[in-house]
Design a protein around this nucleic acid. Structure first.
Lengths: 130, 130
DNA sequence: TTACAGTGCATGCAAACGCATATAACTCGC
DNA sequence: GCGAGTTATATGCGTTTGCATGCACTGTAA
């Protein structure tokens, strides 16, 4: 937990976020990794926010024109979310800078073996029983 | 980040927290690890909260009698924080249950070698240059 | 000693959050 | 087909957060 907190505070303090908060970027990043539109509930699994908070975060991003919402034709309760062209551009721009920060922070202290090990561990933990 | 979010959501959903939030517990736990009273600013390094938010979280815990505040005699701007007897009792009770959850979640998916590797990685990241 | 830049914590305020719950849509048994 | 139960998202409301800033104290230097 301490490792996570110090890393996040360092990333948050970097002057690369423009008018996008780190949680908002988290959503943009997750969407950028999805080849097809995603459900709100699925997005919510990747971010430490309650469902209502995610709903309103998506509201704000949609109002700002960064993501598009459409009701799922197959299940009209559902929302399908995707990046707009502008959202994709913003994600790419911030993502490039953030990726450099992350790479710098991780390689500064961790060996290549550490990095492989950590990747494996995180995959195991994230894929854990639904 | 996904691994962290899923783990935290699972822990948060466990029915072991009583009327102490996970952030409040985080503070109680950190204090329980400190042999001597700690500064607010130092506590804040372990938790992903801004300084004002930490200040008010400590307010609430002090109002509830779980932690004690005293001004540092050596630097009278500073606050020294410590657990009260009740705070220590609460931390121990919740901590015992939470430790079991954590152990279960981690050992379910990770090998002993993974655990040693992760511990080493987290130490390196947490101790990273100020 | 007094002025002044720096540090540690507190507070005002708007924004964001979580909880409980409402709403809408789907599913299943009858 | 129709009501009961379930699932996906939205909304009301009180609480908590972050930002900007204020206040108290420290240290240094004229």
């Amino acid at each position: 937990m301490t490792a996570h907190a110090t890393l996040m505070k360092q990333f948050q303090a970097e002057d690369i976020w423009g008018d996008v908060s780190i949680k908002e970027y988290d959503v943009l990043y997750t969407l950028s990794k999805c080849p097809v539109p995603v459900r709100l509930g699925d997005l919510n699994k990747n971010v430490l926010l309650s469902q209502p908070a995610m709903s309103r975060l998506v509201d704000r991003l949609a109002d700002r024109g960064l993501i598009a919402r459409e009701t799922d034709p197959a299940d009209r309760r559902g929302l399908l979310l995707s990046l707009t062209a502008e959202g994709r551009a913003v994600q790419r721009q911030i993502g490039a800078r953030h990726a450099r920060s992350v790479a710098r922070a991780m390689t500064a202290e961790l060996s290549p073996a550490d990095l492989r090990c950590l990747e494996e561990i995180c995959r195991k933990l994230a894929d854990r029983k639904g």
